[in-house]
Write a protein that binds this DNA or RNA. Structure first.
Length: 959
RNA sequence: GCAGAGAUAGCCAAGCCAGGUCAACGGCGUUAGAUUCAGGGUCUAAUCCUUAGUGGUUCGCCGGUUCGAAUCCGGUUCUCUGCACCA
């Protein structure tokens, strides 16, 4: 036998495939087409073994389709838009040790690390890594000619065309937007991954309602997150230790903190500081509270932070624990009152005004929670928690009390928006945005919220487009089902989505205003169409500058004649016709495959853009795969998975890894990477390799009854494989191929099967079933077995190639059950058997079972009939016991599920396996029917026998 | 917070939509035995409790529907994903 050397087999066949060109996808009108792509990866550096899961599924599915007669298109690409490559390069420029360590552990040479300071090189370098170190090394048969990245010139032309079409559809809108930005670096993303920022990834953008309190000609301005509570205002807070400023905002003068004024200056056209006023000066004055139009006093507090909101706060002690505690502190502190010249009795007289009825709380939740939590002063950190709790309960369960004007009875949830709207309308309030915690940019500057007055959006709220997409969902093939069910809801939920941004980003300039760059999600919503053009760009038949609006209109929307477009673009007419034909042949896409993170963003917008631009060409299917994670979340060196992908391929072998991805679990659950499991998959391929070699060496033999069983099993397996693969159920399929068929053939040999001709026929089919999963091993064995051509393009085996024989399968199932019963008994007793007797049941039991199971007779009928028969009459007790048990069993099996036996069939089956049993248990076997007279039955087992379950008597030495 | 998904034996994971052949596929791990067996190999058997085979208890937790529930319904706790300038 040839030793198994996976590494050399991998190289050998990857080379052969490369040369053979079977990966090239060209039109073949004689075959149905199948077009699958996966959501291309962002160029974010080296990937880990988890990423290969979905990619591998793609190759397995397309290989299967190819072998079942489809002409397959499987292109790959990479997503470079945005700031991933830029921030990657910046990290290298800054000498980020963590990043450099990752590169080094992936065997990245120093001179390359040096070059990775250039974002463009980052894109080129990792594109090459993905293609050559990952996908080709995993044996993928992708159409490499079509490889593209989203920053290719041709791709940019394509995206610009797409946005022109969206504009024609009136789906591009423009309106003000508040975005996060750094004054030095421009727009930054504030998110948990912290790619742009060095601190504050969990910050949220909050909308503050700015309340204007009239004080003479000026306004003292507070900010609140709870505008609906204005009805409960009792006083106003200023921090005596803070120096506030007078700022000219539009035509008004606002008193706010300097920090607040700065923030506001990014969000309003004119904010100009014209003076100062200390907190102390404000205290003791009175202001007119908005909405309630009441005069309230300004009191001192220490919890008011100049950096939070406007640095000034209105006080609602009924629902704000901070306010209540501060008020109480002050009322009880005569010294403090004196210090600010306040009338202590006046402060004491301030009572909370109940405004919200909240589940589980009385009149003043803010007061109650402080008592409950034992909060005693305004610097107690528990106040934060108390505030959150009250807010949560009030927001979800609360209703406005009767003293809240026209909002009385309204839920807090609704009142919040309505009160805010009313105040804006009246001009007593304004809006301001801020981040919930400090955020610091990579450059060290503070990240602020900035008004972008003319932000562009794609309006996914467009009803016509949404409807087209929603209507199409039921016709699509979508796995898993849960996602299919949710997708229409996701589509409805999508409204406007900002689609361009300013600043230093990689990507396509926005065609209507080139200062803007189209953002990363918006430029990956139609790209399956570009794969039908990219190969022409790659081989130079098409120049990016020729790819104008007329060109894409012609290819995708069938506008204009080939002659016209050829002359206006300068593209050869033949090329134009060829591209056009390609598109007509391959489009629409059959499957877009991607990770679970794409469910609510990428897949819906992918559908919507097709619905908007190519409503007749909507993708026919989506396949979502879940993730592979390390134990406890991250991949780790000690537990595996963190090694570079090429290293993992050499440790576990490519076929081993492919089998692992396919067989470890359903594609739609997360899996923990476990070295032992991966190693097992590798050994499984090796085991099958050896076994296949042994089978190939078989000679001669003769045909026996067990042959029919094996053939029939293979028939069923092939049928089940087809059914499973139609749903791309790769786990089920891999289980059948790599475990069940393997076990069946071994059982066949164990049972004495030795028909080399049959085995050779089965092996031939078996190898073909394996090919999509473990293609390298399958090719090698295919060649060793003397077959011509590549197995990768051989036909996938069909169930009809093997004869079905239900009786043979039933007989074998029966024998296995008997064997297992005998084993159980021997195990229980610890007996070394000398003699085992098997008794098939009494004939009347078969008759009754037949009548009940097949003829559906009931118990009364059976008993009546039995009593009429003189021979059965004296067995009535036995009969009724047997019959009622049978009734029970039948119920357990459900409708028609209970197998029924004939006595002769059972007896003959046992008789035919006698020799096998004797060898198996190494003892004498006696097989008899319970109806035979004078049979040896010392422990009276013939009586307990029932159809399908023979009585068993064993004797021998106990040890 | 909002939306969605999930919780199955020591571990990883099928089954759930279409309730009964489910003590619950498969794998890992563990244990025992075999192998002229050198490098985590292969094979056989066992692996909830009980037992001369048809018995008991189990599928996050609590309750309900049903002759019958891992599967259906309600509630509850915990985990994961997305939430719109991260891709």
């Amino acid at each position: 036998m040839i030793d198994y050397d996976p590494a050399s087999i991998e190289n050998k066949w990857q080379e052969r495939w490369e040369i053979s060109g079977i990966w090239k996808a060209d039109i073949d009108p004689s075959k149905p087409k199948f077009y699958l792509m996966f959501a291309y990866p962002g160029v974010s550096g080296y990937l880990h073994v988890g990423h290969m899961r979905g990619y591998t599924y793609s190759d397995v599915i397309t290989r299967y389709k190819r072998m079942t007669g489809y002409n397959v298109l499987f292109p790959v690409g990479a997503h470079a838009t945005g700031n991933v490559a830029i921030s990657f390069a910046r990290k290298i420029q800054r000498g980020n040790q963590e990043q450099i360590d990752i590169l080094k552990s992936n065997n990245c040479p120093d001179e390359v690390i040096e070059k990775l300071k250039d974002p463009n090189f980052v894109v080129d370098f990792f594109s090459d890594v993905y293609v050559n170190q990952y996908w080709k090394k995993f044996g993928f048969l992708a159409d490499w000619r079509r490889f593209m990245t989203t920053v290719d010139d041709g791709y940019k032309k394509f995206i610009q065309w797409q946005f022109r079409k969206l504009h024609e559809k009136k789906m591009l809108t423009q309106k003000p937007y508040y975005g996060t930005a750094c004054m030095n670096c421009g727009p930054v993303a504030v998110d948990a991954s912290e790619t742009d920022i060095s601190q504050g990834g969990n910050a949220e953008k909050q909308e503050w309602t700015v309340l204007k309190f009239k004080m003479g000609d000026e306004f003292v301005v507070a900010a609140t997150l709870r505008p609906e509570t204005v009805f409960g205002q009792t006083n106003f807070w200023a921090n005596p230790d803070v120096e506030y400023v007078r700022a000219k905002v539009d035509d008004e003068t606002w008193i706010i903190s300097a920090e607040g004024a700065e923030k506001l200056s990014f969000q309003k056209d004119s904010v100009k500081i014209i003076g100062k006023i200390s907190g102390k000066e404000l205290i003791g004055k009175t202001v007119i509270a908005p909405v309630i139009d009441r005069e309230i006093p300004i009191l001192p507090s220490t919890f008011t932070d100049p950096d939070y909101g406007t640095g000034l706060v209105t006080s609602v002690p009924s629902d704000a624990p901070y306010d209540w505690i501060a008020l109480r502190d002050l009322a009880n502190n005569s010294e403090e009152c004196k210090k600010y010249g306040l009338d202590q009795e006046m402060v004491k007289a301030i009572e909370p005004i109940p405004i919200i009825i909240s589940k589980g709380w009385g009149l003043n939740p803010g007061v109650e929670i402080c008592e409950k939590m034992g909060i005693n002063d305004q610097n107690d950190p528990k106040l934060e928690e108390a505030t959150k709790q009250i807010y949560k309960d009030g927001f979800h369960t609360g209703r406005m009390r009767d003293n809240c004007g026209k909002f009385a009875g309204m839920s807090v949830f609704d009142a919040k928006e309505e009160v805010k709207a009313m105040m804006l309308e009246l001009g007593v309030a304004d809006i301001m945005y801020d981040l919930s915690e400090p955020v610091i940019c990579r450059c060290g500057a503070k990240v602020i919220v900035k008004l972008i007055p003319d932000q562009w959006f794609i309006n996914y709220g467009n009803e016509e487009v949404t409807q087209i997409a929603k209507d199409f969902v039921p016709k699509m093939f979508i796995q898993p089902k849960e996602f299919k069910d949710n997708l229409p809801g996701n589509l409805d939920w999508f409204q406007e989505r900002s689609c361009v941004r300013l600043g230093n980003w990689m990507g396509t300039p926005f065609p209507f205003d080139e200062r803007w760059t189209i953002e990363p999600i918006s430029d990956s919503t139609l790209y399956s169409a570009y794969y039908l053009v990219s190969n022409y760009v790659s081989d130079g038949k098409l120049q990016p500058e020729q790819m104008n609006e007329a060109f894409f209109d012609h290819i995708y929307l069938k506008k204009g004649s080939a002659d016209e477009v050829a002359s206006s673009t300068g593209i050869e007419k033949a090329v134009l016709e060829s591209i056009s034909a390609d598109f007509d042949y391959w489009y629409p896409l059959d499957i877009n495959l991607g990770g679970k993170e794409h469910q609510t963003v990428h897949f819906p917008v992918f559908l919507m853009n097709h619905a908007a631009i190519m409503p007749d060409m909507l993708p026919r299917g989506l396949f979502v795969n879940w993730w592979i994670s390390g134990k406890g979340g991250k991949m780790s060196k000690s537990k595996g998975g963190a090694e570079p992908i090429p290293d993992a391929a050499s440790i576990y072998t490519v076929d081993g890894l492919r089998l692992y991805y396919c067989h470890i679990a359903s594609p739609h659950v997360d899996v923990e990477w476990d070295q032992d499991n991966v190693r097992h998959s590798k050994m499984r391929t090796e085991k099958i390799w050896k076994f296949a070699n042994e089978l190939m060496a078989m000679q001669g033999g003769d045909s026996q009854p067990i042959d029919s069983w094996l053939e029939s099993r293979i028939h069923s397996h092939l049928q089940n494989i087809r059914t499973a693969m139609e749903k791309f159920d790769m786990r089920e399929t891999a289980g059948i191929i790599f475990y069940e068929i393997y076990n069946d053939i071994r059982w066949y040999l164990h049972r004495g099967g030795n028909n080399a001709e049959l085995i050779s026929k089965i092996l031939n089919a078996w190898l073909r079933t394996m090919a999509p999963f473990t293609p390298h091993m399958a090719e090698e064995l295919w060649e060793t077995g003397g077959n011509d051509g590549l197995i990768s393009i051989a036909g996938y085996p069909k169930a009809e190639e093997f004869k079905q024989d239900k009786d043979a399968e039933a007989a074998e199932d029966y024998l296995r059950a008997v064997q297992s019963d005998i084993s159980d008994i021997l195990k229980m007793t610890g007996m070394m058997p000398k003699k085992i007797c098997l008794y098939t049941a009494h004939g009347w039991k078969y008759e009754i079972q037949q009548k009940m199971v097949l003829e559906k007779k009931d118990m009364g009928f059976i008993m009546k009939e039995a009593m009429a028969d003189p021979e059965l009459r004296n067995k009535s007790k036995e009969i009724s016991a047997f019959t009622s048990k049978l009734m029970k069993d039948m119920k357990r099996f459900g409708d028609g599920g209970m197998p029924s036996f004939e006595g002769t069939f059972e007896f003959n089956t046992l008789e035919s396996a006698k020799e096998f049993f004797q060898k198996e248990f190494d003892c004498e076997f006696i097989i008899a029917s319970a109806d035979e007279s004078e049979i040896y039955d010392p422990s009276n087992k013939k009586g307990v026998a029932s159809p399908g379950k023979p009585g068993i008597h064993a004797e021998g030495s106990l040890n």
